[in-house]
Design a protein around this nucleic acid. Structure first.
Length: 322
DNA sequence: AAGACGAAAGTGGTTGA
DNA sequence: TCAACAACTTTCGTCTT
């Protein structure tokens, strides 16, 4: 397989273990081999692929000798959108000496002094950068509270930069726009979080957040498809401590429901919740409507309505459920 | 007593005149 | 800009396990 570079969306697969596993779930071996050229992490014991589609952070060129490697290498930290100057800063330090340690001439010295002054001013003192610096720290706070991985944070930061350029932030709270970009980034990467969850973690109410999110979609011309209920399953299932057979059955139910046209115009969260409810009963790991409604952030009524439809249309025997 | 059920009224967003 | 509309929520009384 070709290594994946750039920001190719990673498709979540139910059985793919999280990428930061320390030991192999299959044989227990703790030797994990990174195969960067193939973008995979492989168990050294049994060869099980622990995660694939990893982003290759290595160089995009090949070198055939160490001299060639040296000459081609470009030094510096990787560019990041979550640092307000993209991490590309070169800082002029305070010593009045050049690289070889000699004292600078007076004219050179005043020149350096001037450069340093303007570097400091231009970095933090322009209003856009001040806004950005504040927004990015809020982004970090929010993202870590929600447990959102770095690549998604980077995407959110990129979206925020774009919305500053489009002057979307003016007249709106920074927090609201940050929350909206984070919510959007999660959905783009197919790891959606309920809007309520993001709203709770920030100090923004759901309504404002929704407004900012829609504004973002319209102004940046990004087309984000409806979230897929399946993308919620593994998170909800683990919150409810449901086994993986239940998750599998849930996915099955969702796929059949989609084929029967039960999903159009329905809230993906409600569908996910209802499918989990049905599957949990079928697999004899019953959870109450209330418990499920709570993690999916919908009401019991919605769970009920969806699950009734599913049972009726898919011809699931109600008796076998009880 | 907890969970499930379903009716009725309220909410916020979308659509189309 | 406004009304109709679909989906979801809130609330509440009743039935079931």
């Amino acid at each position: 397989m070709e290594p994946v570079r750039g920001d190719a969306p990673e498709r979540s697969s139910l059985h793919k273990p999280e990428s930061d596993v320390k030991s192999c779930p299959e044989c227990g071996s703790s030797s994990v081999v990174e195969d960067l050229t193939r973008g995979e992490r492989v168990c050294g014991g049994c060869g099980l692929v622990l995660s694939d589609h990893r982003i290759d952070t290595g160089a995009e060129w090949r070198a055939f000798s160490s001299e060639e490697a040296d000459s081609r290498s470009r030094v510096g930290a990787p560019m990041r959108y979550t640092v307000h100057d993209k991490g590309l800063s070169t800082v002029i330090d305070w010593r009045d000496r050049d690289v070889s340690g000699r004292k600078l001439s007076p004219t050179r010295r005043s020149e350096i002094y001037r450069l340093r002054k303007w570097q400091i001013r231009s970095r933090v003192h322009s209003s856009m950068d001040r806004n950005l610096a504040q927004a990015l720290s809020e982004l970090e706070r929010l993202a870590s509270q929600l447990g959102i991985p770095q690549p998604i944070r980077e995407l959110a930061a990129l979206l925020y930069r774009k919305s500053i350029q489009k002057k979307l932030v003016r007249g709106r709270s920074i927090e609201a726009m940050v929350a909206a970009t984070l919510y959007a980034a999660c959905r783009i990467r197919q790891k959606p979080r309920p809007l309520d969850e993001v709203a709770d973690a920030s100090r923004i109410d759901k309504k404002k957040l929704g407004q900012c999110y829609r504004l973002l979609l319209r102004s940046l011309n990004v087309r984000i498809p409806l979230s897929n209920p399946i993308d919620y399953i593994s998170r909800f299932a683990s919150q409810l401590e449901l086994s993986s057979p239940v998750q599998l059955r849930t996915v099955e139910i969702l796929e059949r429901s989609r084929d029967m046209g039960l999903t159009i115009g329905r809230d993906p969260l409600g569908l996910a919740a209802a499918a989990i409810y049905v599957a949990s009963i079928m697999m004899d790991e019953r959870r109450t409507q209330r418990e499920i409604a709570e993690v999916a952030r919908v009401t019991e009524v919605t769970v009920r309505n969806r699950y009734k439809e599913i049972v009726r249309k898919l011809g699931i025997d109600t008796m076998s459920l009880v």
